[in-house]
């Protein structure tokens, strides 16, 4: 049997993809949802949600928009970083990623462990934002949020590649902070929000009802219908009888 030889490295030029079956890197275009008619929150009172789910999602949607954990300057840096890591469309309310992170760290609702030599999540975030700000001022004589998006991206790429060495990072490194905090926490908080679930067509909360149709190209009436999917009747007709 023939063996594929894989070279496993960090993010490669191909975005980590292996060239099989005609894989090519995705262009960096503004993505559109395949599920424009789907709103996971429409199921809030259905049998797909229980009371415990309603409680926690309601609290998430009501998260205070002001910083309580971060200082004003750290907050401004964080908001700018979140907009570069997870840019959001202008035509809908923004998922408040920074506010969700502030709330998470204030209540210490983290995974608990730290990876040496990073501090625990809260102190790591505060220090990392201060260090990123210091890098911006050292290189561009301006605050990070005041930089252009292109320059912000460039600075973040330098952090990811471990090419930033301001003493303010110690004992962390920019690369570890980027990997374990920026690239772990910000995407997780965005994809913890119902807006993102609607965007990607995820079924969302599913108890106690669960699902019935499990096979390839099968979909329950209470699941998102993909644009262009022709094999099934429109979701609205199918869902008429379902709560």
């Amino acid at each position: 049997m023939s063996r594929l030889r894989l070279t496993i490295k960090g993010p490669a030029e191909s975005g980590g993809l292996i060239a099989i079956n005609g894989s090519t890197p995705m262009d960096n275009i503004d993505p559109r949802s395949l599920y424009p008619d789907y709103d996971v929150l429409a199921k809030r009172t259905s049998l797909s949600w229980n009371d415990a789910t309603r409680r926690v999602i309601d609290a998430r949607l009501a998260v205070p928009r002001e910083p309580r954990f971060f200082s004003g300057e750290q907050w401004a840096t964080l908001v700018a970083v979140c907009r570069r890591i997870l840019p959001q469309p202008a035509d809908r309310p923004e998922v408040p990623i920074a506010a969700l992170l502030d709330n998470l760290l204030r209540t210490d609702d983290t995974q608990g462990f730290r990876v040496d030599p990073l501090p625990y999540d809260g102190p790591a975030w505060k220090q990392g934002l201060v260090a990123l700000e210091a890098e911006a001022r050292a290189a561009y004589h301006a605050a990070f949020p005041a930089l252009s998006e292109r320059v912000q991206d460039a600075l973040l790429k330098e952090a990811q590649a471990g090419r930033l060495h301001h003493p303010a990072w110690a004992p962390m490194t920019a690369a570890l902070f980027f990997k374990h905090r920026i690239l772990t926490d910000i995407p997780a908080l965005y994809y913890a929000h119902p807006t993102s679930w609607s965007e990607i067509g995820f079924g969302g909360p599913a108890g106690p009802r669960g699902y019935v149709r499990m096979g390839l190209n099968r979909r329950d009436p209470w699941e998102a219908r993909e644009v262009g999917a022709t094999s099934q009747a429109p979701a609205r007709a199918l869902t008429r009888h379902a709560r």
């Binding site: 980590g16 965005y190 067509g201 995820f202």
Partner: peptide, 23 residues
Amino acid sequence: VSVQTSARGLWGPALRTEMMDYN
């Protein structure tokens, strides 16, 4: 999304684009 970020280091529009293919 943690797979996409940890295995491929994706962020920005490239990350959101990849996530659209979830299903």
